[in-house]
Nucleic acid binder design. Structure first.
Lengths: 210, 210
DNA sequence: TAGGCGTTCTTTACATCGTAAAGATTCATG
DNA sequence: CATGAATCTTTACGATGTAAAGAACGCCTA
């Protein structure tokens, strides 16, 4: 017997997206520990197990969220590369004959760090493979896109098989600075630095020679 | 009325250490998610809440474990610096006049990465500040020791306020490579590299110029 | 258009977890 | 030897992930 008299219909219509949005909110508000299936469904106003048909387990929800993160990261990296050089620098570049590709690669690195700082908890989730299910097709596809875009970190090719090691070195540096900054580990170093702003300090750290 | 007739005494004697050892075992076996207060006490053969007098909450247990990790990391870094140069290289160093400090700094970086690869889950725990309680004196002290030892990453001083940025750059590179390797992110890059071994690849990535 | 089926969502249930509180036991200190 | 502090157990409670069964809905087909 149909006893539903209130306005909310039995079927939500777009519950998967609503749950993902709620999950992202919870993640931003309380970090990874605050991301729970029950919390997500509670915020979306549905029953405690309503996420099961869409994501299965908690790891499924996390993976769907991480997939979105990888999509956004891939977009941010390719956008940083395509929008380079910025308009205000094109005149200078033409006159001085400065190298375009290296600084374009720097712009990609800056975009990587900017994404991490803008979405710290999502970024951490994306790189905790133990919490994710890489068998999910959407996650594997999005991560692949991001890794492909990551090659823009390297501005120029390098002879021999050293290209992979070079990529890893560049990636390691931007990734390490990103996670150290997210976890608040750079506080003491930042205090003894010239630039008071975190992004300025990270910029200097990126440019400092090894 | 005393009804205890079995051999196990009511007081354990060294439960704190036993719990920490059990915690470390659980961490190595099942990762961060497997580290639970109840699991630790279960493995130690005591009641479910026996850890409370020693560590308080779960975050307290994690912090005590992380403190041990920082102690070990500090030891590993200082040992790597003090044991440099290795005996087989001292003759070459004297004859060629090679720079000692930069390669000693490399040895410190290698020790950092070696520690992370040898204790992946402990390493991850140490750098997740949201899970730790830095008000605990032992954790703050051990972390301070490790950060002090970390300065050995920089082989020589640098003029002006750029020293902090240089330190961050060096730290970021070794830390980033360590966490990327731990999370299995370097697989695709490793496949297209010369050296098949992970440590050899990381070595090449460290030396690759930016 | 009516019936049936798969999907979506709810309800119920259960094991496990962190943690608080109170009691039992032992140690230490006077 | 007595008293209090520290250690450990027992009990209890709310929250979580997940499994299973049932209700409501959309859709496809006869």
């Amino acid at each position: 017997m149909d006893v539903r008299t209130d306005a909310t219909p039995y079927h939500h219509g777009d519950l998967a997206n609503a749950l993902l949005q709620a999950a992202r909110d919870l993640l931003e508000e309380g970090g990874l520990e605050a991301l729970s299936l029950r919390g997500v469904t509670r915020r979306a106003g549905v029953s405690a197990t309503a996420a099961v048909p869409h994501f299965g387990t908690l790891s499924g929800l996390r993976s769907a969220l991480a997939a979105r993160g990888y999509d956004e990261l891939a977009d941010a990296l390719t956008r940083a590369r395509e929008n380079f050089p910025p308009a205000e620098l094109s005149a200078q570049r033409e006159s001085s004959g400065g190298r375009q590709y290296p600084t374009a690669a720097q712009a990609v690195g800056n975009a990587y760090i900017a994404f991490a700082l803008a979405n710290p908890d999502l970024f951490q989730l994306m790189f905790r493979n133990a919490l994710l299910d890489h068998d999910r097709a959407d996650l594997a596809a999005a991560a692949g896109r991001a890794f492909e875009a990551l090659r823009l970190l390297s501005g120029h090719e390098v002879p021999g098989g050293a290209q992979a090691a070079r990529m890893a070195g560049l990636w390691g540096r931007v990734h390490g600075l990103a996670v150290l900054a997210i976890d608040g580990m750079l506080g003491p170093l930042l205090k003894g630095a010239e630039s008071a702003s975190l992004t300025g300090f990270l910029q200097a750290a990126l440019e400092a020679a090894g």
